[in-house]
Every structure is written in structure tokens, then in C-alpha cells.
């Protein structure tokens, strides 16, 4: 983490680590919802979403559609920015520096360098330190999370397996990160050199995790959350908030489900509330068994 690229706005220093990671702190305990148009964005805002993710197709549709998935049309993103007052996020392809620049020029509040889109670079992710806009990146384990943070990510989300409505991969990734943190915390100073090598993560970030017992930035959960109980489960496992992609607008009653997932995320440790908000929601999105996807069908293995 560094403030190399911090700029000087009219009022003070823009794009500093504190400003970029700070917005993620304000999103904690909230639900970030994928939306494809202004109407869905308003439904999300009216349901209590703390931010929306603007994209042309939700992950389940991307799976069905096939082909190359790219950054969304700026016009569609701008329409959503006009429709709501909450933060608007948008996705660029992994390693696609220019898509990220375009999103920054649109004044997107958070850029998601996302494995849901087809990677543009098989070797490198975007150098996120070079941007004023903050980035959120997916991770499946602690080493991957720390690599993204070293590149300048100001927020992490577990990848899970987007577009499946199956929470099992989100659970795996959250537990893997938590176990990684526990292992670093209980390791000796000597062992942390070996852990940094094994995890392919910068030593200073490994040492930071060891001293603080958490990631240096906020960690949300994503990829397969479809019900209020799924959201509450991820909070129980230590997520600081949730992204819900296909789970809301692929369900039978999106406004009610969106609202219920927001309530369940706030009251995750009160089963009576989770039960109340889960009643009569009609059908959730149809789920996909992860094994049916095959290796080639997995999005979580994109990026390194």
C-alpha cells in the first residue's frame, strides 16, 4: 500500500489509501447488488443496498450467453449513476488497464477487476496504485488477497463461484482466507518468511496480517449467495458484507428478496429475524451444482 498516486484535488489529497480503503469501511455490514439497468438500481436502493454493481449481464446470464464478457457500455453505467445516490461500482476485465481508466473517467465509485468478465491479461492484473478510483478484487485464499492488496486493491471479496446460486465456493474461500490469517497469526517471525514465499505474497503484508489478525482492507463475500440465510452464513463466517449478483434479479420476487437479504445481513446473528424475512419469498434463482460446471466452466480460477 502506498500513497504514490495521491493527487491534489481542489479540497485536499485525493486517491490516498485512507480515502480509497475508507469507502469500503463505510460499506461494511451492507449488501452490494448487481443491476443491469436504472430500474433495477432503484429497486436495489429502495431495498437498502449500500451500493450497486452496474453490469450489462448478471453472471448467470454471462454463463448462459458464453463468448467474451467485457466492460459494460458506458451509457448504461451512466444511466445507473443518474438513477441512484448510493455508490455505483462497475467491472473491468482482469488486467485491462484501459477499461479501468474508462471506468475511472466515468467517476465510478469502485472498480471491480473481476473474474466474472473474460480476462484480458493472463499474466498480470491492473496496477491499481496508479488510479484515484478504488478497486475491489476477488480472492480465493490469503496469498491471492495480499497480492491484490500489494497491487493497490482497497477492498477484497471472496470469489465464490458467480452465477451459480450455490454458496459452497464462497464458504470455501472465506474459510480458506480465515484459516490463512490464523496460520500467520500463530507463526513465528522466522516462519513468516517461508509463508510469504509459499503464499507468493509480500513479506510486509504477511507481517501486517500477523500483527493485526485481519486483512489490511475490508473483506466482503461474493459468488453464489442466493438467500437471506446464505448472506447471514457469510457474515457468520466473518465476511464484513456481501455482494449478491444473480441471486436477486434471477429470483421470482426481486424487491422482496433484495429487502430480505439486506435485513438478514444486518441481523445475521438473530435467527428469528432471518426466519421472518425468509418467509414467503417465492422461488430463489435456480442453482447449479459446482461439479456440473467442469474445470473450464469455473470463473474462480481466473487470475492468479
Amino acid at each position: 500500500m502506498n500513497d504514490d498516486v495521491a493527487g491534489n484535488g481542489a479540497q485536499g489529497a485525493t486517491g490516498t489509501d485512507a480515502v480509497k480503503a475508507g469507502l469500503a469501511r463505510m460499506l461494511k455490514g451492507g449488501v452490494i447488488m448487481d443491476v443491469v439497468d436504472a430500474e433495477q438500481a432503484r429497486i436495489a436502493e429502495d431495498a437498502g443496498a449500500c451500493a450497486v454493481m452496474a453490469l450489462e449481464r448478471i453472471p448467470a446470464e454471462i454463463r448462459r450467453h458464453g463468448g467474451v464478457a467485457r466492460m459494460s457500455d458506458p451509457e448504461m453505467i451512466m444511466g445507473i449513476q443518474e438513477a441512484v445516490t448510493i455508490p455505483v461500482m462497475a467491472k473491468c476485465r482482469i488486467g485491462h488497464h484501459v477499461e479501468a481508466q474508462v471506468l475511472q473517467s466515468l467517476e465510478i465509485d469502485y472498480i471491480d477487476e473481476s473474474e466474472v468478465l473474460t480476462p484480458a491479461d493472463e499474466a498480470s492484473h491492473v496496477d491499481k496504485r496508479a488510479f484515484t478510483a478504488p478497486f475491489v478484487c476477488g480472492a480465493t485464499n490469503l496469498g491471492e488477497a495480499l497480492r491484490r492488496i500489494a497491487e493497490g486493491a482497497a477492498m477484497i471479496r471472496t470469489k465464490g463461484e458467480a452465477g451459480t446460486g450455490n454458496v459452497v465456493e464462497a464458504v470455501r474461500h472465506m474459510k480458506t482466507i480465515t484459516q490463512g490469517i490464523r496460520r500467520v497469526v500463530t507463526s513465528t517471525a522466522e516462519e513468516r518468511f517461508a509463508i510469504a514465499k509459499e503464499m507468493a505474497a509480500p513479506l510486509e503484508l504477511v507481517e501486517w496480517v500477523g500483527a493485526n489478525g485481519r486483512l489490511p482492507v475490508v473483506n466482503f463475500s461474493a459468488g453464489g449467495i442466493a438467500t437471506p440465510a446464505d448472506a447471514a452464513l457469510m457474515m457468520y463466517l466473518g465476511a464484513e458484507g456481501v455482494f449478491v449478483g444473480s441471486g436477486i434479479f434471477m429470483s421470482e420476487d426481486p424487491p422482496a428478496r433484495a429487502r430480505a437479504i439486506v435485513e438478514a445481513t444486518t441481523h445475521w446473528d438473530d435467527p428469528a429475524v432471518v426466519a421472518r424475512v425468509s418467509r414467503g419469498l417465492r422461488e430463489a434463482m435456480p442453482g447449479i451444482e459446482i461439479g456440473e460446471l467442469g474445470e473450464a466452466g469455473l470463473l474462480q480460477t481466473r487470475g492468479w
Binding site: G9, Q11, G12, A13, T14, G15, T16, A18, V19, G22, L23, Q81, P87, Q104, E107, I108, D109, Y110, T132, A133, P134
Partner: peptide, 11 residues
């Protein structure tokens, strides 16, 4: 009031 996130600042 100060704009979107890219205009967020510290001072």
C-alpha cells in the same frame, strides 16, 4: 456534496 468517490479527499 463534494462529488463522487474520485473526488473524496483528505485535508
Amino acid at each position: 456534496a463534494w462529488g463522487r468517490q474520485v473526488r473524496s479527499f483528505e485535508a
